[in-house]
Structure formats: structure tokens, C-alpha cells
């Protein structure tokens, strides 16, 4: 085992250092554009955004009234995706819901990646008391019971009279704040082993600054983990948003979100009899996550010069 365990190639890291930044970016950009999955991912994601943010303006039902007598209709020429139990057009709700879900999914994930990545790298790289403090904090946060915290936060926001429409911004931070721990831990353990490797010794010899070492040399190596966490995180955030909205932390009804639409159809009968209630939001979440995954994979490949496409 030992003799094959020669680690990261020294020359590649050096090359990275010596080249000027713009060309790395240009290279990466070119490689990215050559990746057909990346393009597909971009197209899907762009479509989802247009669908959600521009789409509603093309819907004839934007100002429609609730009409229970038209409730639970299957898809038809009038309502392409049918109606829900209050007779609202599912297609329009799907588009409106996308605004919330896309924003929350992506913003919360960025926060997770930023906090988790940063704290994980610092803990792993510096070790010592910084490591102890960060990781014990992580222990505590990891052990904290999610639901009661959320219930309490919901009540606090209500007591502080924070207008319900604004709470969505807080939600993104809350989601980010409680979910960074897992990622931080993963990154920390990877960095623990990376920093003992030869190329890191080389950076030491070269006398690089710590921030440069972490950002330029360590972080790229943990990128695969980050990308997987991020793609899974988007899906997770979109789904957990609906749980938060029940506690007064998420969107307020009647504003829809994909997670909310899915969980509204949580019984055997809606499931079997009215697939138009749950297939559309399910597919929307899936497409978004798949697109982000494709882009993430392609990004990683693009920043890896060894990858030949």
C-alpha cells in the first residue's frame, strides 16, 4: 500500500501557482463549455429560473379567484397541470413556488458551503485550540434538537413582529446555520490528511501565506466533497423549507413553494388519484437538483487540468 500511496502530483500544483490567475479561469471556462452535461445543466437551470420568474406573467390565472367547484380537476387544455382542491391552477402555483424554492435552495446552500467550508478548513488546517473550539461548537450545534429550536424561533419572530413576508430571508440563514456542521466535519478530516502531503510541504518551502495555502491548494482538493454536499444540500433545503413554513418560519400561505406543494399531497388518495398534485413539484425539484449536479460535476472537472475532455 505504502509505495503506491504517492500523493498529489507536485508538478500540477506548482503549475497552478506559477500561471497567472486569468488563464486558469480561461482554461477552466473553455473546458466547462466543452462539457455537454454542463451545457445541459445550464440550460435546465436557466429554464427553471425563467419558468418561475417570468412564466407567471403568461398565465391567464394570475388574477383568478378561488373556485372550489373547479377543485381537483385533472390536467386539461384549460389547466395544463390540473387544479388543486381550491380550484387553483397547478401550473401557475408551480411557477410561483419556484421563485421561493429556487431562492431558498440556492441561497441556503451557498451559506452552508461558505460557513462549513471556511470553519472546516480553519479547524483542519490550524488545529490546536481553534480546532477544539470550532469542533466542540459543531458538536453542540449538531446535537441541538432541530424542531424545538425552530418552534422557538418561529415564536420569537412572531413576538418581534417581523413581518411574515420577510421571514424567508431569515429562513435561509437558519437553514444554513444549522446545516454547516456535517460539511465542516468532512472538510476538516480531509484537510487533516491533505496537509501532511508532499505538495503542502512544498508550499511551506515556498513560504506561501496561510490564506493562499488554504484557498488555492487545500480547498480545490476538497471541492468534490463540497460539490456533492452542495447539490444534495439544494434538494434538502428545498424540501425542508416546507417543514419550516409550517412553523411560521418559511413562506406564508397562500404563497406556495415546491416543498409545500409536495407535502400538501401526503395521503394515499391524493397520491393514487391525483398525481398532478405531486408529480409537477417533484419533477421541478429533481430537474433543479440534477442541473446543479451537472454544473457542479463539470465545474470540478473544469478546474482539474488532468481531465481530458
Amino acid at each position: 500500500m505504502d509505495q503506491v500511496n504517492v500523493n498529489q502530483p507536485l508538478d500540477y500544483k506548482k503549475k497552478n501557482n506559477l500561471k497567472k490567475a486569468p488563464s486558469i479561469w480561461r482554461d477552466a471556462f473553455h473546458r466547462f463549455l466543452k462539457n455537454k452535461y454542463a451545457i445541459l445543466g445550464l440550460v435546465i437551470l436557466t429554464f427553471m429560473f425563467l419558468f418561475s420568474f417570468v412564466g407567471p406573467y403568461f398565465s391567464p390565472y394570475l388574477d383568478a379567484k378561488i373556485d372550489v367547484s373547479k377543485g381537483n380537476q385533472p390536467p386539461s387544455a384549460e389547466h395544463w397541470l390540473g387544479t388543486d382542491n381550491l380550484g387553483r391552477d397547478v401550473l401557475l402555483r408551480l411557477m410561483l413556488a419556484g421563485r421561493i424554492s429556487l431562492t431558498i435552495g440556492i441561497a441556503a446552500t451557498l451559506i452552508i458551503v461558505l460557513i462549513g467550508g471556511m470553519l472546516g478548513s480553519i479547524a483542519g488546517y490550524y488545529g490546536g485550540w481553534l480546532d477544539v473550539i470550532i469542533m466542540r461548537l459543531a458538536d453542540i450545534i449538531y446535537a441541538m434538537p432541530g424542531l424545538p429550536i425552530l418552534i422557538m424561533l418561529g415564536a420569537i419572530m412572531s413576538d418581534l413582529k417581523i413581518p411574515p413576508p420577510q421571514r424567508i430571508y431569515y429562513v435561509m440563514f437558519i437553514l444554513g446555520f444549522i446545516s454547516w456542521v456535517g460539511l465542516a466535519r468532512l472538510i476538516r478530516s480531509q484537510i487533516l490528511s491533505l496537509k501532511e502531503q508532499e505538495f503542502m510541504l512544498a508550499t511551506e518551502v515556498l513560504g506561501l501565506r496561510d490564506s493562499k495555502k488554504i484557498i488555492k491548494h487545500l480547498f480545490p482538493n476538497v471541492l468534490p466533497t463540497v460539490i456533492v454536499s452542495a447539490t444534495l444540500g439544494v434538494a434538502g433545503a428545498i424540501l425542508s423549507e416546507s417543514a419550516l413554513s409550517f412553523l411560521g418560519l418559511g413562506v406564508i400561505p397562500p404563497t406556495p413553494s415546491w416543498g409545500y406543494m409536495l407535502s400538501a399531497a401526503n395521503n394515499m388518495i391524493d397520491f393514487a388519484k391525483r398525481p398532478w398534485l405531486w408529480i409537477p413539484p417533484g419533477v421541478a425539484i429533481m430537474l433543479t437538483v440534477v442541473a446543479i449536479n451537472f454544473i457542479g460535476d463539470a465545474l470540478r472537472d473544469a478546474f482539474d487540468p488532468r481531465q481530458k475532455i
Binding site: I151, G154, A155, S158, P164, S245, F246, L247, G248, I252, P253
Partner: peptide
């Protein structure tokens, strides 16, 4: 009409 969803006990408390 502004609705604020809250958990049941939180409402009782209020």
C-alpha cells in the same frame, strides 16, 4: 388579512 403559521402550542401561548 395577514396569516402567520405557528405551531399549536405557540398559538395557545399567545
Amino acid at each position: 388579512f395577514v396569516a402567520e403559521p405557528l405551531e399549536f402550542n405557540a398559538i395557545i401561548d399567545k
